[in-house]
Nucleic acid binder design. Structure first.
Lengths: 203, 203
DNA sequence: CCACCGACCGACTGACCGGTCGGTTTATAC
DNA sequence: GTATAAACCGACCGGTCAGTCGGTCGGTGG
């Protein structure tokens, strides 16, 4: 028996799911509320019953996703172990997400210019907390434990994120073949670099 | 004496320059032809005399920029030396570009979804030739010369590009302080990784 | 000087978009 | 069964945008 509350929640979830697919595939302005409504099999009026505006829908979608991810990734942060092992766990958790869930992570950089004020700030902040800040924590521990050479952990976190984004690109995904290969590539590059003869000097 | 031809070229250049500033600061759809016209101090009708469409203007801007950059970066490719030195030169050339010129490079990834068909393909192709493909050539030489561990050079090229993009972010730019520090950071990370005790295994 | 043409203008067009609103439907409580 | 409120509908609205068009201006050549 579907109650009004669960009916409403189910509809809102259906709208969010439809929005996810569309916003992953197209830039913010290229996704129309008509498209989202059609994909969610509801009218635009119905859509506006649940979300105050297009922007409100987008933010709900993104902030919800980042909160899910923050919770997922904080497990790796909380796990004792080497910096490398913890980054491995976090990255594996990320790589094993469904393709679309992974792609959502990138939308901030793509779409953030379209927003301003506190909406923009909350997007950036939620992304930061979900991913880079957690990686930074792990790297800071690595620096403290002298596993990682002393360097600005935030820059290293962003560098790590950037390297992960490369291996989930289409070409790299096909070339490397599977999640473990992607993972080993990123970790190998991040920790050991590409030089055949290590120079012995910290980064 | 300004001829019609040079007058026309000057106006088109003025429009392109105005477009660059605007498209760097905002996503494609958020920049209107009215804005561009106003910034170029011309009317919209005048703007449409020079460019067939907004898309035509954007493509002219981007393809022109990528051609300039392809020429700039091919000097590093053509210079004999170690992989590291040649990457250093190319990256220094890039880092020394005016801020806006550097930012233009990223617009492809941000805006490419808005385009389709041959326009999309030509954008991607021009970007590829201007930067990643040239880096890939240098890295391939590094692999051949056994300076770089054997790995897919295209993935490494994109990884290198990704690392450079991190150090030109606002935070890293301020933290690292100057172009040489940015350069050393990227090269150190790319060639040597972050591990204090090199494992001696190739990436 | 005059004719011509490219460069440019400013008013205009119509498609599209985010959002609205009066009405209908559905679920629930009494 | 009835009343109510939430969920939803479909037609509508008005602002915005890319692009158009008839006209003017400026430069050039005969």
């Amino acid at each position: 028996m579907l109650t009004a509350q669960t009916r409403s929640e189910a509809t809102a979830a259906r709208i969010i799911a439809a929005a996810k697919s569309l916003f992953v595939a197209r830039n913010y302005s290229d996704v129309t509320t008509d498209m989202i409504a059609a994909a969610a099999e509801i009218t635009k009026g119905g859509l506006y019953h649940h979300f105050a505006s297009k922007e409100d829908l987008y933010l709900a979608m993104m902030l919800g996703d980042f909160e899910d991810k923050r919770r997922l990734f904080e497990q790796a942060v909380a796990t004792p172990g080497t910096c490398r092992d913890r980054l491995a766990q976090l990255t594996r958790d990320y790589l094993e997400l469904p393709h679309e869930e992974r792609e959502l992570t990138h939308l901030v950089r793509r779409d953030v210019n379209t927003f301003s004020g506190k909406e923009r700030d909350s997007l950036i902040s939620a992304y930061q907390k979900a991913l880079p800040a957690q990686i930074e924590t792990i790297i800071n521990d690595g620096i403290r434990d002298e596993e990682v050479a002393a360097c600005d952990a935030r820059i290293l976190a962003w560098s790590f994120v950037a390297l992960v984004e490369v291996v989930i690109g289409q070409y790299a995904e096909v070339t490397l073949g599977n999640t473990e290969a992607q993972l080993e590539h990123v970790l190998g590059l991040f920790f050991g670099g590409v030089s055949i003869t290590p120079k012995g000097e910290p980064a």
